[in-house]
Computed example of a mutant assay.
Amino acid sequence: MFWLKKILSQLVMPVPFTLLCLLMALLIWRYCSKHKKVIGQLCLFLGFSTLLVFSNSYVSAALSHSLESRYSVNEIPLSFAYDENENYQCYVMVLGSGHTENNEISAVQQLSSTALARLMEGLRQLDIADRPCTLVVSGWSGGITPTPHAMIMKRAAIELGVPAESITIFPTALDTIEEAQAMKQLVGKTPFILVTSATHMPRSIKIFSQENLFPVAAPTNFISSTGYWWRFSAENLFISQRSIHEYVGMEWLKIKRFLIETFE
């Protein structure tokens, strides 16, 4: 199901969808009869239209802002979620987001820009906490690198001054659902700070809440920016694709829950 979800979700992303349309147009023009070539023209139109629309600054800003505006930057220590005299264990969970393994550079430099932004916000949350907190980092190797992403995140956090004994890792979590399940085993009903990209936060909160967890949102890595209406760029296309990935993911959650409730 994990790989099926990944493959199917790619088919509705702007870049793969455009390439698929162009490939279909090429095959139709090459092998189909003349009266069917109108379908090839339609595929060509859909491909270029998709590329044009989602690389536009206004479209990418609208898609991303709708997600990023749902949760504001967290400036309040976790203690607000508890009674004043209640004793509790503080956790700050940072969701993973990829790295490039290279033993010749530091762990911080191996992190993707998204992962680094998330980690830095996690460290900021540790700083504003009113008591010592455990940093939780997660992520598997992706089947590409020998070292799990969680381990690289831990090494980076240590390089940035976090004591090793204050870090917990989930090195086998494949996605946000498995991260939530692992966190449930660790914290139970205890509220905790959840750090992830602002576009990813709405879906993350939904997933963690469905596991009966109590995350406090600390979004970071805001990417929405309004530019000139006539500006088209690969950066805008990237922002649109990340946003669409989140919308598709949230719809998948609804479908999955419906199927579970139907066949239980």
Rank of each mutant, 00 (worst) to 15 (best):
M1T: 10
L4P: 03
I7S: 06
M13T: 00
P14A: 02
V15G: 04
P16A: 02
P16V: 04
P16G: 06
T18H: 00
L20Y: 01
L23Y: 05
M24R: 04
L26V: 13
R30G: 09
R30L: 15
Y31E: 12
S33I: 09
K34R: 15
K34V: 15
V38E: 14
L42D: 03
F45G: 12
L51W: 01
L51Q: 03
L52W: 04
L52Y: 03
S57C: 02
S57N: 01
S57H: 00
H65L: 12
S66G: 07
L67M: 10
S69M: 03
S69P: 00
Y71C: 02
Y71V: 01
N74T: 11
N74I: 11
P77V: 06
L78V: 07
S79P: 05
S79L: 09
Y82A: 01
N85S: 08
M93C: 13
V94S: 06
L95W: 04
G98H: 02
G98Q: 04
E104G: 13
E104Y: 08
A107W: 07
V108P: 01
T114N: 07
A117S: 12
R118G: 03
L123W: 05
L123V: 05
L126F: 04
A129W: 01
T134S: 10
V136F: 05
W140K: 12
G143F: 03
G143W: 09
I144P: 00
I144V: 14
T145G: 10
T145P: 01
P146W: 02
H149R: 07
M151G: 00
I152N: 08
A156P: 07
A157L: 05
E159K: 05
E159D: 13
L160S: 10
G161T: 04
G161M: 02
P163R: 02
P163Y: 01
I167H: 06
I167C: 12
I169N: 02
T172V: 13
D175L: 12
D175A: 08
E179K: 03
G188P: 13
K189D: 15
T190G: 07
A198V: 08
A198W: 00
T199Q: 15
I205H: 03
I207E: 06
F208K: 09
Q210N: 15
E211V: 02
L213F: 06
N221W: 05
G227S: 03
Y228M: 09
R231T: 07
R231K: 14
F232Y: 12
S233Y: 01
N236Q: 09
V248Q: 00
G249N: 05
G249A: 08
E251M: 14
L253C: 15
K254S: 15
K254F: 10
R257V: 14
I260C: 10
